[in-house]
Design a protein around this nucleic acid. Sequence first.
DNA 1: ATTATACTTGCAACTCAGTTGATTTTCGAG
DNA 2: CTCGAAAATCAACTGAGTTGCAAGTATAAT
Lengths: 145, 145
Amino acid sequence: MGMSDLCDFQEWLRRQGLRPTPVRLAVLETLAEASRALRAQEILTVIRARRRVNKVTVYRILEDFTRRGIIRRLNLEGRACHYELACEHRPPHPHFQCRTCREIQCLEPAPLNIVWAELRGPLGNRADHIEVRVAGLCHKCREID
Amino acid sequence: MGMSDLCDFQEWLRRQGLRPTPVRLAVLETLAEASRALRAQEILTVIRARRRVNKVTVYRILEDFTRRGIIRRLNLEGRACHYELACEHRPPHPHFQCRTCREIQCLEPAPLNIVWAELRGPLGNRADHIEVRVAGLCHKCREID
DNA sequence: ATTATACTTGCAACTCAGTTGATTTTCGAG
DNA sequence: CTCGAAAATCAACTGAGTTGCAAGTATAAT
C-alpha cells in the first residue's frame, strides 16, 4: 500500500547508521507494501521474486531492525513470528487472528492507549511495550463453518 | 501453589470424558503448583523428577487440554509457548515479561475486561479470546542495568 | 590509486521446539 | 479372561530460526 512514498527508507537507514543496502531496502519495501504483518518466510519469498538472497541475511536484518525499533515483531499463534513496519504512520495496534485460517488483521490503535493507561500505573512504569492479540473466527471462516 | 485442593482434577478430567491417567494428572498438578506459566520442557522436567514419561505424551496432552480449554497456551516472546491452568480460580489475565531475563509474571485480570469491552464491539463479536503481553524490565534486571 | 578496515552477505551445519506415523501398552467393558 | 478403544512410546522428521566462519563489498586512511 505505497507507504514507501511517505517514508524515505534510504534516509531512515542512514540516520540509524546503517548502509542502505539492497536487501535492507527490499525488506522495508516488502513490509511497506504488505497489507498485513508478514512472516520471515513470506518476506523472503517476496524478495526472491526479484533477487537472489540468503535466508540468514533476512533473519539477521529482521532481528537488527526489531532491536532498533524500525519494525515490530509480533508473537501471534503459530510458530513463526510476524513483522510489521513501525514508522510514525503505523503506530502499535492490536491484531486479530482467525483461529481457523490463521489470517491476521490489524485493528484500530486506539484501544491500546486504554490498556497502556490501565497497566503502566500498576507496573510502576516498568512496561515499555504492549501487545494485544485477539483470536476468533473471521467472516470467511464463519460462513464455511 | 496448592490449587490442587481447590480443583479436583480427577473429577475434572472425567467430566471431559478423559481418563484420569497419571501423566494427565501430573501435567495438571505441575501447572497448579507453579507460580507462573510454564514451558512444555519445564513441565516435562518436573514430571520426570517423579516418573518416566515421553515428551510426545506431554505435548499431546498439552495440545488436547488447550483445545478443551482446560489450560491456556500463551504466545510470549521466545520460541516456546507457555501454559497455565484455566480453572475458574484462574481467569484470563495479562502477562508481564522481562526483556532481559524473560521471566513471566501474571498481572491482575481486571484490565482484560476493559480491553474486551473496547474490542468486542468493533469486531462484531467475532472475538472469543484476548491475550495481552506487556514487555519491559523487571525489578531485578533494572537494578543490574 | 592502493591498501586497510569494517560492514554485509552467503554457505553449511546446527539447535530448539515441537509433530508424525507406526507400534506397543494399558485400561475398562463384556 | 479377552477384546477393543484409549493412552503412551519410539524413532524419525519438520519448520523456524541460529551460529560460526569464509567471502565479498564499501568506506576510510595512506
